[in-house]
């Protein structure tokens, strides 16, 4: 019972923090609240027995990603402008999607059900045999590194790729990136030339294409 109460309290805190993040305009406060949100999520994962996940979420969500976001705020400014368009359409879309998803949860197995399909397929094998096959007490490490080694190799490659991509985007000095920075101006020149060049090729298609671009 006490576990259920902790569960409900943490989830309610998470909901409240998420709504505060949505409503606040000061991005500094938003980033700080998202760190708190991650810490609450980590506590929630401990309550759900996922200690490894909680460990990672606390280190990553409350630590590294908060530092990264604050560093970016120092580069971009920390006030959000009021949204220019009405929130009615997004609200309708979100409400409909949420209602459909909640309707779908009634088909889900009950919370904590040991006989749910997800707990019957490979998990018993991992829990019963991994001590004999791999010999590590921490089943999460056995599955991560041994049974699902391919999967983890892929994830590590994704991290490597993301680091390379960030290097490509931010590696050079500000200003010496001719191709990237001058692109809008080059585009405008190209756009100006287009009507003169293209009618010979495709007189019917081009104006509509350009109009579509202008209005979008």
């Amino acid at each position: 019972m006490i576990i259920t109460l902790i569960d409900i309290a943490l989830l309610t805190f998470m909901g409240a923090t998420a709504i505060a993040i949505l409503r606040l305009r000061s991005l500094f406060a938003v980033v700080m609240l998202s760190g708190i949100y991650s810490l609450l999520a980590a506590s929630m994962f401990v309550a759900l027995d996922a200690v490894d996940v909680a460990f990672t979420e606390a280190a990553v969500g409350a630590g590294i990603s908060t530092v990264l976001m604050i560093t970016v705020l120092s580069l971009t400014g920390e006030r959000e402008r009021a949204p220019g368009h009405s929130p009615i359409l997004p609200m309708i879309v979100v409400t409909l999607t949420g209602a459909a998803l909640i309707y779908a949860t009634f088909d889900m197995p009950a919370f904590g059900d040991a006989n749910a399909p997800v707990n019957l397929h490979v998990a018993p094998r991992y829990l019963n045999d991994s001590m004999a096959e791999v010999g590590l007490p921490n089943v999460v490490t056995s599955v991560l590194a041994s049974y699902r080694g391919y999967d983890t190799l892929g994830e590590v490659t994704v991290i490597f790729t993301a680091a390379v991509a960030v290097m490509m985007l931010l590696g050079g000095r500000k200003g010496d990136d001719a191709g990237f920075k001058n692109e809008p101006e080059e585009n405008s020149v190209a756009d100006g030339d287009d009507p003169a060049d293209d009618p010979a090729d495709d007189p019917a298609d081009d104006p509509s294409g350009k109009n579509g671009k202008g209005t979008a």
Binding site: V51, V60, V67, P137, V140
Partner: peptide
């Protein structure tokens, strides 16, 4: 110690990085 308790390469990497950061 990730073989015996909670932990492993992902967590350790992030913690080590946070020391440098």
């Amino acid at each position: 110690h990730g073989d015996f308790g909670p932990g492993g390469g992902f967590q350790a990497g992030v913690i080590m990085a946070s020391a440098f950061i």
